[in-house]
Amino acid sequence: MSENDYCGHFPIGVSMATMSTAIETIDPMDLKTESGKRRIARMKKEKSLYILMIPGILYFVIFKYLPMWGLTIAFQNFQPILGFLKSEWVGMENFRDFFSSPDFFMIFRNTLVLSLLNIIFYFPMPIVLALLLNEVRQAAFKRAIQTIVYIPHFISIVVVASLTYVLFTTAGGAVNILMERLTGETINFLGSPRWFRPLIIGQTIWKETGYGTIIFLAALAGVDQNLYEAAAIDGAGRFKQLIHITLPSIANVIVILLILRMGQVLDNGFEQIFLMTNALNRNVAEVFNTYVYTVGITQGAFSYSTAVGLFKSVIGVILVLGTNGIAKKFGHSGLY
């Protein structure tokens, strides 16, 4: 709940892509081909580099690894007042409770459907927008549009939800007024299970598309301009150039981002969904994170929510490894 805040301020796109390059750059030279002696000699030589790393390593040990023993409360009936040492150990009970809950499948389904819709409808949007922006020839116009479309990223989701209500309510919302004029009927967008997912995806598209273009624009800026000139000389039109030069140059980024998104399919934004849920759409709206909140956090069930979180992380790792394997099969470099 809070941990994610720390790194949740920039789009998954940027951060995830960079993570991937990290994994993929592991150098074969580093494999244990050299003798221990030479290794130690080199370590001595690079003493200053190790000294430089001390603050960083201390940071990770103290603030990241030290708190990780907290994950063990997934196997406890953790009572804050008793602390970690005195709380009762319950083995897998929290996991059993979760899997045996009648809501488990509903939540699983809702979470996956929403994530898949997100991948199908939201994911291509920044790519399309970036491609369109890339075709703009007036630099000033391009920069102006860029600046504008980044803004929503900085607006609180509470404000976004409240604006959605204002615009879509049947009681005089701008969209429904328009609908009534055009079709003579109003649609209860906010209270129908059918419209819940489109609304959520729409909000995400509105809020994050612009900011999500950054990484693609960055990749596009790196494309060698000579390629275009050569293609133009060969008589390729703009559309052909797009297909044969522009797209392939960002294909790897797209694949990497897609893989990493797969690792996150169980993680839908909590606040957004929580704010948009109501009695009429709950059967499609309840997802892992909102479930953990209502069952766990509001009632102080730390162990239970930690167990669900742990389950989610493990599934996430499996999914990333799986999609990575598939990507490799199809000839992309993958992550590892």
Binding site: S162, Y165, T169, T170, A171, N188, L190, G191, N278, A279, L280
Partner: peptide, 12 residues
């Protein structure tokens, strides 16, 4: 009563 009561934010 208002048609949209189930969706209406109580802040409104």
């Amino acid at each position: 009563v208002n048609e949209d009561f189930a969706m209406m934010e109580s802040s409104k």
